[in-house]
Design a binder for these strands. Structure first.
Lengths: 366, 366
DNA sequence: CTGTTAGCGCATTCAC
DNA sequence: GTGAATGCGCTAACAG
């Protein structure tokens, strides 16, 4: 029903080919006077090129596929924002898929595969895989992606990958976690516990490994490690679990003097510090601690990972490892859209020491 | 380069049409034995249907366009998640666009128009407009959308619209704001200030109007109204501005006794309550207050709007008006994808009274 | 039930 | 520089 190029051409009194040449770029440049007539006709009829038809004719779609885990998670939405930015700059549209939603036909674990297949079906020019995949690399996924790459598609994955021909954006998850743990140790903390994310998630594992190695370097071991989903609720539950496992005792509520009567684990030593594999989960952990009567950082300290922008207003401010999420999205999109770029690109962040781990805020004027 | 249906058909020794019928749904159902052969051939060759070609032939793309303002903003990302959910359930892919990013060619204010044109170009089956548009309804936008609708496209807009044929998802912004203000007044608060969002944003205006009417109903007027962007930074700056304008005095830091030596505005009355047009901005406001030595809710109270999930772990917990963001996204997608649904659909939320406005948390076990 | 044919809307060879 | 013809990969009438 929409007006098509043929109609514009007829209206302008030129051939289909000519109309095509003036409206949608071409090597050959029609005469200016005739071009003006065509443009006028197009404008008048409200012509809008059919991208599907163009895609079929040109075999390039101007589409980039982005698969994240949960777009509502600030980690992914910030990343997505970065992707969007460079995509729009290079005139691409982004197709979004999430691996956390029910996919009707596909089994839960196959969400990523389903998303990739859909993108391949739409012949996206590139696919960005940001949903921290499960360790179990699906051979079907690999096969589909390799075929896609061989057909000229570009794929960028967040983290390492075995997919031949794929570009990868390496993130300093392990090194960052190690650096964070080390910084905390230098600050005098001696007792740690770890709240790990889902065991099967690559990102989560790398961070936990980093925490553990950081502790090992100082001859320390975590008092406990509890796994849970990368959500606020996951952090809350894991923390409650931790409290029970470690037999943590909340200080006697003697708030009038403000003096604390007991600290874990050593009455005289530094408080326990909980290293959490991501910020959102750390937030849940803090809520659990508060609910159970622990003060942060006096009774228990907490450190997260990511430095989610939205959480920077939190009080106490969260000690964490800052990842340039937005920039990561941009780099990923650049790798996807600019073939000449070399991979892998390595992304590092920085340790950010704040109140939740006993550091005093540098009274940021914002 | 990818394998096409013709090849699968040849491999299976059947005609193109038959292959099409078994692989991609059809009314006619081929015999089971022949169907199996085709499926086997497709599997072996790694056939993936070309959605572009299908779209061209069927004139329906299986695409939904979603335009938000800033996908990194939890308000929009949560909404987007809801959209994604029903889209995936009805086997649709979502095309995402943001109006906050530079659009190269298009002027800043034209981002929404550019996004809509792109979606129309891709012949999305429906377009969901969630970027709370500026009040100045662009006639070009309206024209494009109406043509789109007349060509069979469905459009859903968040809020009221003058676009003929568009469905709309009405949100109780004004009524909610009014209810929130009223609840606070009933609680005994007598002095209010307002932190409004961008003046040109519909959503922002409706909320401010609601706040004002709520106050008026109790014969009150806001002590001041400050505008600012819907961001944490916007809330921070607006609050600093407010502090100066109102000459707010922070209590003398006499923390040993915990006694406050001064309160604004009346030493004996209830503290000032700042009504903020959205949660993210309210967060920035709280940070500003804290930075300037005010305790929440003792010295100043704060109320937001939206009840962003990620912010529920904040302390003090934010009093706000809860909007079912995720569900709103779902409803919008349903309106977009299920033609029989009637519009407008009205969404209401609920007042949530929490610590930031002096209410005690019901020790939520989460 | 299966095969043949004709477009879907547009870019792009080719001749002119 | 411009117009006519061919094909992109697939679906949907049509026949058989």
């Amino acid at each position: 029903m929409p007006v098509k190029l043929t109609e514009v051409a007829r209206e302008a009194g030129v051939s289909l080919a000519t109309a095509s040449r003036v409206l949608n770029g071409s090597a050959r440049t029609p005469a200016e006077d005739i071009a003006k007539r065509v443009r006028a006709a197009a404008e008048e009829l409200g012509y809008v090129a059919n991208a599907q038809a163009q895609a079929l004719a040109k075999s390039t779609t101007g589409l980039v596929g982005l698969v994240v885990h949960d777009i509502a998670d600030p980690y992914f939405s910030t990343f997505a924002h970065g992707v969007q930015k460079v995509a729009s700059l290079s005139h691409h549209q982004v197709l979004l898929a999430g691996t956390d939603l029910p996919s009707e036909d596909a089994p839960p674990g196959d969400a990523e595969l389903a998303a990739v297949r859909a993108f391949i079906s739409y012949r996206t020019d590139a696919i960005i895989l940001a949903a921290s995949r499960v360790t179990d690399e699906d051979p079907r996924l690999a096969a589909a992606l390799e075929r896609y790459i061989n057909s000229g598609g570009r794929v960028v994955v967040l983290g390492a990958t075995k997919i031949a021909g794929a570009s990868s954006l390496m993130v300093a998850n392990k090194a960052g976690a190690m650096a964070l743990a080390t910084a905390l140790i230098e600050h005098g903390t001696t007792h740690f516990a770890i709240l790990a994310g889902p065991a099967e998630r690559n990102t989560a594992r790398a961070r936990v490994d980093g925490f553990v190695e950081g502790l090992q370097a100082a001859s320390l071991v975590p008092l406990a490690t509890v796994h849970g989903p990368f959500t606020s609720r996951g952090g809350y539950d894991a923390t409650v679990d931790l409290i029970h496992r470690l037999g943590l005792l909340a200080p006697t509520p003697n708030t009038t003097t403000g003096a604390d009567t007991s600290r874990f684990p050593s009455p005289s030593g530094s408080p326990l510090c909980i290293l959490v594999a991501n910020d959102v989960m750390a937030l849940g952990a803090m809520t659990a601690l508060r609910t159970h009567g622990f003060r942060i950082p006096d009774d228990v300290q907490v450190a997260g990972f990511d430095d989610i922008p939205t959480l920077r207003d939190h009080s106490p401010a969260l000690t964490t490892y800052r990842l340039p999420l937005e920039q990561m999205g941009q780099r990923a999109a650049e790798l996807a859209l600019e073939p000449q770029l070399r991979s892998p690109v390595t992304i590092t962040g920085e340790v950010v020491l704040r109140e939740s781990a006993g550091f005093t805020a540098p009274t940021t004027g914002k």
